[in-house]
Simulated assay, not measured.
Amino acid sequence: MAVPIGVGDSAPRSLTVLQASPRAFCAGVERAIEIVELLLERQGAPVFVRKQIVHNVHVVRGLEARGAVFVEELDEVPDGATVVFSAHGVSPAVRRDAERRGLRVVDATCPLVAKVHAEARRFAGRGDTIILVGHRGHEESEGTLGEAPEQTIMVETVEDVQRLSVSGPVSYLMQTTLAVDEAAAVVDALKARFPDLRGPDSDDICYATTNRQNAVRAVAADADVILVVGSRNSSNSVRLVDVARRAGVKAYLIDDADAIDPLWVRDAKVIGLTAGASASPVLVSDVLEALRGYGDVKVLEREVAKEDVHFGLPSEVRSR
Rank of each mutant, 00 (worst) to 15 (best):
M1N: 03
A2C: 03
A2P: 03
V3T: 13
V7K: 11
V7Q: 08
G8V: 04
Q19H: 01
F25I: 12
R31P: 04
R31N: 05
E41D: 14
Q43W: 12
Q43T: 12
G44N: 11
V57F: 12
H58P: 00
H58Q: 05
A65R: 12
L74S: 06
V77K: 08
A81C: 10
A87N: 09
H88Q: 12
G89F: 06
P92S: 11
R104D: 06
A108H: 06
L112E: 00
H117T: 05
A118R: 14
R121Q: 10
A124H: 11
G125S: 09
D128H: 15
L132C: 07
G134C: 04
R136W: 15
G137P: 06
H138Q: 08
E139N: 10
E142R: 09
E142C: 03
G143C: 10
T144N: 07
E147A: 05
P149A: 15
Q151S: 07
M154R: 15
V158E: 09
Y172T: 00
Q175V: 03
T177N: 02
A183E: 04
G199S: 07
P200G: 05
D204C: 07
Y207R: 03
R212M: 12
Q213P: 13
A220Q: 01
D222V: 01
D224R: 14
I226D: 00
V229Y: 03
V229K: 03
G230R: 13
S235K: 12
I254S: 11
A259I: 02
D261V: 09
W264Y: 13
V265Y: 10
A277S: 07
S278I: 03
S280H: 00
L283Y: 02
V284R: 02
D286W: 04
L291P: 01
G295K: 09
D296K: 02
K298Q: 09
V304L: 06
A305G: 05
K306W: 15
E307F: 14
D308E: 08
V309W: 11
V309R: 14
H310I: 15
L313D: 05
